[in-house]
């Protein structure tokens, strides 16, 4: 017969498993990797979700697919006009 503590212990383990799986899937890990990493977390017997995620962060490998595309090329200011008031002269005189 399962004791009350065992029951809650099992529930928290199940929650940790599902939530780490969800996290890892969202991160782009394959199903096999997700299961393996979740099992590694569970093997440490974390007592709550926060501890479980602290453990997970410690064992997450670096992801090659997170090399996101470069969002901007190098800056080249050689055309820059330093005069911030350029064209302000159009208001200096009345002229048609």
């Amino acid at each position: 017969m399962t004791s009350t503590n065992d029951y809650f212990g099992e529930t928290i383990r199940r929650r940790i498993l599902w939530r780490t799986l969800k996290y890892l899937v969202a991160f782009g890990y394959s199903p096999e990797e997700c299961l393996s990493l979740s099992q590694k977390v569970l093997a440490e017997n974390p007592e709550d979700l926060a501890t479980a995620f602290a453990l997970l962060r410690g064992i997450l490998p670096l992801r090659a697919q997170l090399n996101f595309p470069q969002s901007a090329p190098p800056i080249n200011r050689s055309f820059m006009v330093t005069d911030q008031e350029a064209n302000g002269d159009i208001f200096n005189d009345f002229e048609l």
Binding site: F79, M80, V81, E85, A86, N87, G88, F91
Partner: peptide
């Protein structure tokens, strides 16, 4: 681009 940068900066009215 070069002409735009050099000549078309908008002044404040």
């Amino acid at each position: 681009t070069e002409a735009f940068i050099k000549h078309c900066q908008l002044p404040r009215i």
